[in-house]
Protein backbone atom coordinates (compact mmCIF):
# COMPACT_ATOMS: atom_id res chain seq x y z
CA UNK A 1 0.00 0.00 0.00
CA UNK A 2 2.85 2.35 0.86
CA UNK A 3 4.52 1.62 -2.45
CA UNK A 4 1.26 2.24 -4.32
CA UNK A 5 0.83 5.59 -2.63
CA UNK A 6 4.46 6.48 -3.39
CA UNK A 7 3.89 5.78 -7.09
CA UNK A 8 0.54 7.56 -6.98
CA UNK A 9 1.98 10.67 -5.35
CA UNK A 10 4.91 10.85 -7.72
CA UNK A 11 2.73 10.37 -10.76
CA UNK A 12 0.12 12.88 -9.64
CA UNK A 13 2.81 15.41 -8.77
CA UNK A 14 4.45 14.90 -12.17
CA UNK A 15 1.19 15.65 -13.94
CA UNK A 16 1.20 19.10 -12.48
CA UNK A 17 4.93 19.67 -12.85
CA UNK A 18 4.67 19.37 -16.60
CA UNK A 19 2.91 21.92 -18.76
CA UNK A 20 0.91 19.17 -20.50
CA UNK A 21 -1.45 18.83 -17.54
CA UNK A 22 -2.38 22.51 -17.66
CA UNK A 23 -2.81 22.50 -21.41
CA UNK A 24 -5.12 19.50 -21.18
CA UNK A 25 -7.00 21.04 -18.28
CA UNK A 26 -7.44 24.32 -20.15
CA UNK A 27 -8.51 22.56 -23.33
CA UNK A 28 -10.95 20.29 -21.57
CA UNK A 29 -12.48 23.14 -19.58
CA UNK A 30 -12.75 25.34 -22.66
CA UNK A 31 -14.44 22.64 -24.73
CA UNK A 32 -16.84 21.50 -22.03
CA UNK A 33 -17.48 25.16 -21.24
CA UNK A 34 -18.35 26.05 -24.82
CA UNK A 35 -20.68 23.09 -25.13
CA UNK A 36 -22.28 23.93 -21.81
CA UNK A 37 -22.88 27.49 -23.01
CA UNK A 38 -24.37 26.31 -26.30
CA UNK A 39 -26.69 23.81 -24.66
CA UNK A 40 -27.70 26.30 -22.01
CA UNK A 41 -28.41 29.14 -24.42
CA UNK A 42 -30.48 26.95 -26.74
CA UNK A 43 -32.37 25.68 -23.71
CA UNK A 44 -33.00 29.19 -22.44
CA UNK A 45 -34.03 30.30 -25.89
CA UNK A 46 -36.51 27.46 -26.24
CA UNK A 47 -37.97 28.19 -22.82
CA UNK A 48 -38.16 31.89 -23.61
CA UNK A 49 -39.89 31.32 -26.95
CA UNK A 50 -42.37 29.09 -25.25
CA UNK A 51 -43.09 31.76 -22.68
CA UNK A 52 -43.81 34.35 -25.39
CA UNK A 53 -45.98 31.88 -27.25
CA UNK A 54 -47.93 31.00 -24.17
CA UNK A 55 -48.55 34.66 -23.43
CA UNK A 56 -49.69 35.24 -27.04
CA UNK A 57 -52.12 32.37 -26.99
CA UNK A 58 -52.96 32.72 -23.30
CA UNK A 59 -51.96 29.15 -22.51
CA UNK A 60 -50.12 27.80 -19.51
CA UNK A 61 -46.35 27.64 -20.28
CA UNK A 62 -44.90 24.18 -20.85
CA UNK A 63 -42.72 22.65 -18.22
CA UNK A 64 -39.21 22.26 -19.65
CA UNK A 65 -37.14 19.46 -18.21
CA UNK A 66 -33.53 20.58 -17.61
CA UNK A 67 -32.35 17.03 -17.01
CA UNK A 68 -33.78 15.75 -20.23
CA UNK A 69 -32.95 18.66 -22.49
CA UNK A 70 -29.66 19.86 -21.10
CA UNK A 71 -27.92 17.60 -18.63
CA UNK A 72 -28.36 14.34 -20.53
CA UNK A 73 -26.92 15.51 -23.86
CA UNK A 74 -24.26 17.45 -21.99
CA UNK A 75 -23.02 14.28 -20.31
CA UNK A 76 -22.77 12.66 -23.71
CA UNK A 77 -20.67 15.57 -24.74
CA UNK A 78 -18.32 15.30 -21.79
CA UNK A 79 -17.95 11.59 -22.53
CA UNK A 80 -17.00 12.34 -26.11
CA UNK A 81 -14.49 15.02 -25.13
CA UNK A 82 -13.02 12.60 -22.58
CA UNK A 83 -12.47 10.11 -25.34
CA UNK A 84 -10.18 12.61 -27.04
CA UNK A 85 -8.51 13.79 -23.86
CA UNK A 86 -7.80 10.64 -21.87
CA UNK A 87 -5.18 9.24 -24.27
CA UNK A 88 -3.23 12.46 -23.63
CA UNK A 89 -3.27 11.67 -19.92
CA UNK A 90 -2.33 8.03 -20.25
CA UNK A 91 0.30 8.42 -22.96
CA UNK A 92 3.06 9.36 -20.59
CA UNK A 93 2.19 7.04 -17.73
CA UNK A 94 4.60 4.33 -18.77
CA UNK A 95 6.28 5.53 -21.97
CA UNK A 96 7.94 8.30 -20.02
CA UNK A 97 9.52 5.83 -17.60
CA UNK A 98 10.93 3.88 -20.50
CA UNK A 99 12.26 6.97 -22.21
CA UNK A 100 13.93 8.34 -19.09
CA UNK A 101 15.30 4.94 -18.12
CA UNK A 102 13.56 5.13 -14.78
CA UNK A 103 12.06 1.68 -15.36
CA UNK A 104 15.43 0.45 -14.17
CA UNK A 105 14.81 2.19 -10.88
CA UNK A 106 11.27 0.85 -10.59
CA UNK A 107 12.17 -2.74 -11.48
CA UNK A 108 15.13 -2.85 -9.11
CA UNK A 109 13.24 -1.33 -6.18
CA UNK A 110 11.53 -3.60 -3.70
CA UNK A 111 8.06 -3.12 -5.21
CA UNK A 112 5.93 -5.43 -7.32
CA UNK A 113 4.73 -4.73 -10.87
CA UNK A 114 1.16 -4.73 -9.53
CA UNK A 115 1.97 -1.86 -7.18
CA UNK A 116 3.51 0.11 -10.04
CA UNK A 117 0.55 -0.40 -12.36
CA UNK A 118 -2.15 0.20 -9.74
CA UNK A 119 -0.42 3.35 -8.51
CA UNK A 120 -0.22 4.72 -12.02
CA UNK A 121 -3.79 3.75 -12.85
CA UNK A 122 -5.12 5.50 -9.76
CA UNK A 123 -3.05 8.61 -10.49
CA UNK A 124 -4.52 8.76 -14.00
CA UNK A 125 -7.99 8.37 -12.62
CA UNK A 126 -7.41 11.07 -10.01
CA UNK A 127 -6.25 13.44 -12.70
CA UNK A 128 -9.40 12.69 -14.69
CA UNK A 129 -11.49 13.61 -11.66
CA UNK A 130 -9.58 16.90 -11.50
CA UNK A 131 -10.47 17.43 -15.16
CA UNK A 132 -14.14 16.91 -14.36
CA UNK A 133 -14.18 19.49 -11.56
CA UNK A 134 -14.92 22.50 -13.80
CA UNK A 135 -17.89 20.68 -15.35
CA UNK A 136 -19.23 20.17 -11.84
CA UNK A 137 -19.06 23.91 -11.44
CA UNK A 138 -21.13 24.30 -14.63
CA UNK A 139 -23.72 21.92 -13.24
CA UNK A 140 -23.74 23.88 -10.01
CA UNK A 141 -24.89 26.93 -12.00
CA UNK A 142 -27.93 24.97 -13.10
CA UNK A 143 -28.77 24.11 -9.51
CA UNK A 144 -28.33 27.75 -8.55
CA UNK A 145 -30.80 29.12 -11.11
CA UNK A 146 -33.02 26.14 -11.79
CA UNK A 147 -34.23 23.01 -10.11
CA UNK A 148 -32.83 19.99 -11.93
CA UNK A 149 -32.93 16.60 -10.30
CA UNK A 150 -29.75 15.75 -8.51
CA UNK A 151 -29.59 11.97 -8.85
CA UNK A 152 -29.20 11.88 -12.66
CA UNK A 153 -26.28 14.27 -12.32
CA UNK A 154 -24.69 12.01 -9.75
CA UNK A 155 -25.23 8.91 -11.86
CA UNK A 156 -23.81 10.77 -14.85
CA UNK A 157 -20.59 11.43 -12.97
CA UNK A 158 -20.41 7.87 -11.70
CA UNK A 159 -20.76 6.75 -15.31
CA UNK A 160 -18.08 9.18 -16.50
CA UNK A 161 -15.61 8.04 -13.87
CA UNK A 162 -16.25 4.36 -14.58
CA UNK A 163 -15.91 4.94 -18.30
CA UNK A 164 -12.79 7.03 -17.68
CA UNK A 165 -11.32 4.19 -15.63
CA UNK A 166 -11.82 1.87 -18.61
CA UNK A 167 -10.15 4.28 -21.00
CA UNK A 168 -7.29 4.89 -18.58
CA UNK A 169 -6.60 1.19 -18.03
CA UNK A 170 -6.56 0.67 -21.78
CA UNK A 171 -4.36 3.72 -22.37
CA UNK A 172 -2.00 2.55 -19.63
CA UNK A 173 -1.68 -0.81 -21.34
CA UNK A 174 -0.85 0.84 -24.65
CA UNK A 175 1.63 3.09 -22.86
CA UNK A 176 3.51 0.04 -21.55
CA UNK A 177 4.07 -1.14 -25.11
CA UNK A 178 6.09 1.80 -26.38
CA UNK A 179 8.56 4.38 -25.22
CA UNK A 180 7.16 6.92 -27.64
CA UNK A 181 4.46 9.11 -26.13
CA UNK A 182 3.00 10.08 -29.48
CA UNK A 183 2.49 6.44 -30.44
CA UNK A 184 0.97 5.78 -27.02
CA UNK A 185 -1.44 8.70 -27.48
CA UNK A 186 -2.47 7.77 -31.00
CA UNK A 187 -2.80 4.10 -30.08
CA UNK A 188 -4.91 4.94 -27.06
CA UNK A 189 -7.07 7.28 -29.07
CA UNK A 190 -7.56 4.77 -31.91
CA UNK A 191 -8.47 1.97 -29.51
CA UNK A 192 -10.92 4.18 -27.62
CA UNK A 193 -12.55 5.37 -30.83
CA UNK A 194 -12.82 1.84 -32.15
CA UNK A 195 -14.52 0.65 -28.98
CA UNK A 196 -16.80 3.66 -29.22
CA UNK A 197 -17.99 3.19 -32.80
CA UNK A 198 -18.10 -0.57 -32.78
CA UNK A 199 -21.70 -0.34 -31.56
CA UNK A 200 -22.71 1.43 -34.76
CA UNK A 201 -21.97 -1.77 -36.63
CA UNK A 202 -24.74 -3.52 -34.77
CA UNK A 203 -27.35 -1.98 -37.06
CA UNK A 204 -25.84 -3.81 -40.02
CA UNK A 205 -24.88 -6.99 -38.22
CA UNK A 206 -26.94 -10.14 -37.99
CA UNK A 207 -29.06 -11.10 -35.00
CA UNK A 208 -26.26 -12.99 -33.26
CA UNK A 209 -23.49 -10.45 -33.78
CA UNK A 210 -25.51 -7.30 -33.13
CA UNK A 211 -25.99 -7.73 -29.37
CA UNK A 212 -22.35 -8.71 -29.00
CA UNK A 213 -21.14 -5.58 -30.79
CA UNK A 214 -23.52 -3.57 -28.74
CA UNK A 215 -22.25 -5.08 -25.56
CA UNK A 216 -18.60 -4.53 -26.44
CA UNK A 217 -19.15 -0.90 -27.38
CA UNK A 218 -17.96 1.23 -24.52
CA UNK A 219 -20.53 3.96 -25.11
CA UNK A 220 -23.76 1.93 -25.00
CA UNK A 221 -23.00 1.28 -21.36
CA UNK A 222 -22.79 4.95 -20.66
CA UNK A 223 -26.29 5.63 -22.00
CA UNK A 224 -28.11 4.54 -18.84
CA UNK A 225 -25.78 6.51 -16.58
CA UNK A 226 -26.49 9.69 -18.55
CA UNK A 227 -30.18 9.06 -18.17
CA UNK A 228 -29.88 8.65 -14.44
CA UNK A 229 -30.08 4.86 -14.31
CA UNK A 230 -27.42 2.99 -12.37
CA UNK A 231 -27.46 -0.56 -13.63
CA UNK A 232 -25.08 -3.13 -12.14
CA UNK A 233 -24.70 -4.68 -15.58
CA UNK A 234 -22.98 -1.56 -16.83
CA UNK A 235 -20.93 -1.10 -13.67
CA UNK A 236 -19.78 -4.69 -14.08
CA UNK A 237 -18.80 -4.01 -17.69
CA UNK A 238 -16.64 -1.02 -16.81
CA UNK A 239 -15.03 -2.68 -13.84
CA UNK A 240 -14.29 -5.81 -15.86
CA UNK A 241 -12.89 -3.63 -18.62
CA UNK A 242 -10.62 -1.76 -16.20
CA UNK A 243 -9.39 -4.97 -14.64
CA UNK A 244 -8.61 -6.37 -18.07
CA UNK A 245 -6.61 -3.27 -18.93
CA UNK A 246 -4.69 -3.42 -15.65
CA UNK A 247 -4.06 -7.13 -16.08
CA UNK A 248 -2.76 -6.67 -19.62
CA UNK A 249 -0.48 -3.82 -18.49
CA UNK A 250 0.87 -6.08 -15.79
CA UNK A 251 1.55 -8.92 -18.19
CA UNK A 252 3.10 -6.49 -20.61
CA UNK A 253 5.67 -5.16 -18.16
CA UNK A 254 6.35 -8.62 -16.77
CA UNK A 255 6.97 -9.98 -20.24
CA UNK A 256 9.40 -7.19 -21.03
CA UNK A 257 11.28 -8.11 -17.93
CA UNK A 258 11.49 -11.77 -18.81
CA UNK A 259 11.99 -11.52 -22.53
CA UNK A 260 15.15 -13.37 -23.50
Amino acid sequence: MKAISAIFNKEFKLFFYSPIAYVILALFTALTGVFFYLYLSSFVEAAFMDMIRSQQYRMAPQKFNVNLMLIRPYFWNIALISLFTLPLITMRLFSEEKRLGTVELLYTSPITPTQIIVGKFLAGLAYYVVLLLPTMFFHAILFLYGDPEFMPVLSGYIGLILMGASFISMGLFISTLTENQIIAAIGGFAAALLLWVIGWGSSFAGPTLAPILNYVSIITHFEDFAQGVIDTQHIAYYILFSFTGIYLSLKSIESVKWRA
Partner: peptide
Protein backbone atom coordinates in the same frame (compact mmCIF):
# COMPACT_ATOMS: atom_id res chain seq x y z
CA UNK B 1 22.31 2.37 -13.77
CA UNK B 2 24.46 3.67 -16.58
CA UNK B 3 21.93 6.41 -17.31
CA UNK B 4 20.90 7.74 -13.92
CA UNK B 5 17.17 7.05 -13.58
CA UNK B 6 16.02 10.60 -12.88
CA UNK B 7 12.64 12.26 -13.22
CA UNK B 8 13.79 15.46 -14.83
CA UNK B 9 10.73 17.44 -13.77
CA UNK B 10 11.07 16.75 -10.06
CA UNK B 11 13.29 18.64 -7.63
CA UNK B 12 16.18 16.77 -6.04
CA UNK B 13 14.32 16.63 -2.73
CA UNK B 14 11.10 15.36 -4.28
CA UNK B 15 12.96 12.77 -6.26
CA UNK B 16 14.87 11.43 -3.29
CA UNK B 17 11.66 11.38 -1.29
CA UNK B 18 10.02 9.25 -3.97
CA UNK B 19 12.92 6.80 -4.14
CA UNK B 20 13.04 6.63 -0.34
CA UNK B 21 9.36 5.72 -0.31
CA UNK B 22 9.91 3.13 -3.02
CA UNK B 23 12.58 1.57 -0.87
CA UNK B 24 10.08 1.35 1.93
Amino acid sequence: PENPPLYTELTVDDYLLFVAQLKG
